[in-house]
Amino acid sequence: MPNSWNPFELIARRWTPSARVVRLTALITVVMAVVIVVTGGAVRLTQSGLGCETWPKCTDNSLTPTSDMGIHGVIEFGNRMLTYVLCGVIGLFIIAARSYKPTRRSLTRLGWVQFWIVMGNAVVGGITVLTGLNPYIVSSHFLISMALLTVAMVTWQRTREGDAAPRGLVATPVRQLSWLLVGAAGVLIVIGAVVTGSGPHAGDATKVHRIPLDWQEITQLHVDFVYIVFGLTVALWFTLRAVAAPKVISRTVVELFAVLLSQGLIGYIQYFTHLPEFVVGMHMLGSCLVWIAVLRVFLALRERGEAPAAVPAPTGEHEALQPAEEDPAPAASR
């Protein structure tokens, strides 16, 4: 198909969004990435993981839940439908980024990365149902969602900065300390997924296979890594003060402190109240917020210059006849 008929190119010729619109659509993808994690947790915590007994249909004979499936079918199917909402939001960002002038290929590429992560995770979600909530698949489903959140956060940050090579705002040892913080937080999230796979909330009222580990011992390991992440955060804060780093960086570390303290409080409440569903759901939300705060600290330690200002698109028949630039989207997705 001629490039001039590429729908992304046709929209780009007729619409030039402002930088604010591009940033807003990127932020919405971050919010939706969090929503999909929390609602996925709600499916498990309400024992609705097998509310739709098969995939991609809800039953062998029906795409949607039937009345005899009750609320569990509605909850599971509703979570599936949110995937389409997420794809729509990501698609809106891709269109906005593609239509922005000057064109920033780095943004559209990140948008397509998000799209393909969602598609891959949808397949993993189907495998989760078809395997009867295999805990290893359930854990990978959650971790892929966190990968989506990571890319969405990087995308949002990139909309607020330029395309120059990243330049560190602090010395290399300080940046290396931030790498340790990111690594420890990543391990913390992975261990949290193992706790989920071995803990009492299996996702369905029937007997579901669990990871054969003592979930209380894994929980203690999870707590140990909380202390490691907290200690690295304290070390980074003192280090930033010692090197007189920009205040905006120190502020992101303080925000991380606040999120960690809140998440730690929720964690202790859920443990000593024997894991009530609502509190566990709040802890899942807190996991997303901790990861966001960690990424904000890491991304604040470098800069890429100012984001390019939007420029009006050329108008008239002459512009319409100009050859289109190659779209970064894979050919199969056009």
Rank of each mutant, 00 (worst) to 15 (best):
A147Y: 10
T39Y: 11
T172W: 07
W156V: 05
W237C: 00
A245M: 07
H209C: 00
T315D: 11
N61T: 14
A33D: 07
V89M: 12
I269N: 02
G231S: 13
A320F: 12
L240K: 01
Q322C: 05
R14P: 13
I75V: 13
D224C: 05
G70S: 06
Q322K: 15
E326C: 07
F298V: 04
G78S: 14
M153V: 14
V30R: 01
G305H: 06
G120V: 06
L130Y: 04
P7R: 07
A147W: 11
P330M: 07
I218V: 15
S333G: 05
W112V: 01
T206I: 11
A242W: 15
G305V: 06
V280W: 04
V170C: 04
I94P: 02
A245T: 05
R44G: 11
L289Q: 10
V194H: 02
M284H: 03
R160V: 02
P65F: 15
A320C: 04
T46K: 03
V229P: 10
H274Q: 05
Y227D: 04
A97C: 07
Q157E: 04
Q157I: 00
F225R: 00
H318K: 10
G162V: 00
V30Y: 02
S262R: 03
A12Y: 01
I95F: 08
M1Y: 12
V174F: 03
A42V: 15
D60R: 11
F8K: 04
L188E: 15
G111A: 12
T233E: 06
S178I: 02
E76C: 02
P200Y: 05
V243Q: 09
I191P: 01
R44I: 13
V254N: 09
V290S: 09
A309S: 08
E319G: 08
E325V: 09
G183M: 12
F272G: 02
K101A: 00
Q270E: 13
G40I: 10
G162Q: 02
G70R: 06
V22L: 11
A12D: 04
E161K: 01
P17Q: 03
S262D: 01
V279A: 10
G88M: 09
V30P: 00
H201Q: 12
E255V: 08
W179G: 04
E326H: 10
A324G: 12
I211M: 07
L27H: 03
G186S: 15
I127A: 09
L130N: 08
Y136V: 14
L236W: 07
L321G: 15
Q176W: 14
G199P: 03
L133F: 13
G168K: 10
N79C: 10
M284T: 13
V248G: 00
V89Q: 10
I11R: 15
E161Q: 07
L86K: 00
L232F: 15
V182I: 12
I211V: 15
A324E: 11
M32R: 00
A300K: 05
S67I: 10
A329F: 12
A19H: 13
T16N: 14
W215H: 10
V74E: 09
L148D: 14
R158F: 09
L86V: 14
I144S: 11
L301Q: 15
V85L: 15
L92K: 03
M81K: 03
A152K: 02
I228R: 00
G183L: 15
C52Q: 07
R302Y: 14
E255H: 05
R167E: 13
A320T: 08
P276D: 06
